[in-house]
């Protein structure tokens, strides 16, 4: 539960507090546990609500502004609209990528480097698979803003993975 929370909230203190509050809430609501699911899924259900409450609390502290979260890492194109730096072939089949733990760990590190709002929105959409409408309502943004944010987040993640993971792979190949 702690690992699950830390991936989503990034901050160690907040993750600890959320896990602790989840157990406290579970104890208070234990009479509501009908046994229709496993205790684990019931606890994770409470945990997910606590994580969402945490995001909502943060949203109140930070007003959303798309330009504030733009790290200007929009990929560069030349005047004809071609890539200035061509995307590289990672040599992986997307369907088998889930088996690559090293790349997944790098992705986790790259996620932590995203601007906070981009990170939260990307996690809700791609890590937790939440519905776009729900995310737009949570952040009070239009679907077009959501697509722009996700596009920029993906580009930043792609660039981060090329800089940290792919360059290591290429070094290994050169040495061997």
């Amino acid at each position: 539960m702690y690992r699950y929370t830390l991936l989503r909230v990034k901050d160690v203190d907040s993750a600890e507090e959320i896990v602790q509050n989840t157990f406290m809430a579970a104890i208070q609501a234990q009479s509501n546990f009908a046994g229709l699911s496993t205790e684990k899924s019931w606890l994770f259900g409470i945990l997910k609500h606590k994580i969402m409450d945490h995001f909502r609390g943060q949203k109140r502290l930070m007003s959303f502004n798309l330009s504030d979260n733009d790290d200007s890492t929009e990929p560069d194109y030349d005047t004809s609209g071609h890539w200035r730096i061509f995307p590289k072939d990672w040599g992986l089949d997307p369907e088998k990528a889930a088996e690559n733990n090293e790349l997944a760990r790098h992705l986790q590190g790259c996620l932590d480097g995203l601007p906070e709002k981009f990170r939260q929105i990307f996690i809700m959409k791609e890590v937790d698979g939440l519905d776009s409408t729900q995310i737009c309502n949570e952040f009070d943004i239009k679907p077009t803003n959501l697509w722009v944010i996700l596009h920029r987040a993906r580009n930043q993640l792609k660039q981060c993975l090329e800089a940290h993971w792919l360059s290591k792979q290429e070094d290994k190949k050169t040495k061997s």
Partner: peptide
């Protein structure tokens, strides 16, 4: 084509992390 594959890989891995 490479760009699309990269985004597909990121999508698959994000689900794994979650």
């Amino acid at each position: 084509q490479c760009y699309k594959t990269q985004l597909d890989i990121i999508k698959t891995l994000a689900r794994k992390l979650g």
